[in-house]
Amino acid sequence: MKVLVVDDFSTMRRIVKNLLRDLGFTNISEADDGSTALPMLKEGSFDFVVTDWNMPGMQGIDLLKAIRADAKLSHIPVLLITAEAKKEQIVMAAQAGVNGYIVKPFTAATLNAKLDKIFERLG
């Protein structure tokens, strides 16, 4: 399974990559914001996107909307891992079609549980 991790902080990308690797995801690419991620998604056959919300350039929520608006990408599950914690924003993400929402700071167990839930639903 090919995963794209999008976050503007390299340390956070590294944490997420390590956790994902521990859970058996070995094919992981990185992008530092939505506008870098989107062309990568269009070119590569990614199966899953983990993204931050607040990034310079294109934000995670806008990346999510762009993915859902693109017929070739709209099927890709998207997990938001973000410090953004306003109820309004969570509702916004849900309406935009997010598959999971994790607030930072988070634990490995939370990530594991959300991934299980996402892939269980997708079957």
Binding site: W53, N54, Q59, I61, D62, A83, E84, A85, K86, K87, E88, Q89, I90, M92, V103, K104
Partner: peptide, 18 residues
Amino acid sequence: DNLVEGPIVNAAQRDDVV
């Protein structure tokens, strides 16, 4: 944009955040 605020440092005093 998109109500972005970053980490909430006073969540206990606010009712608009989780």
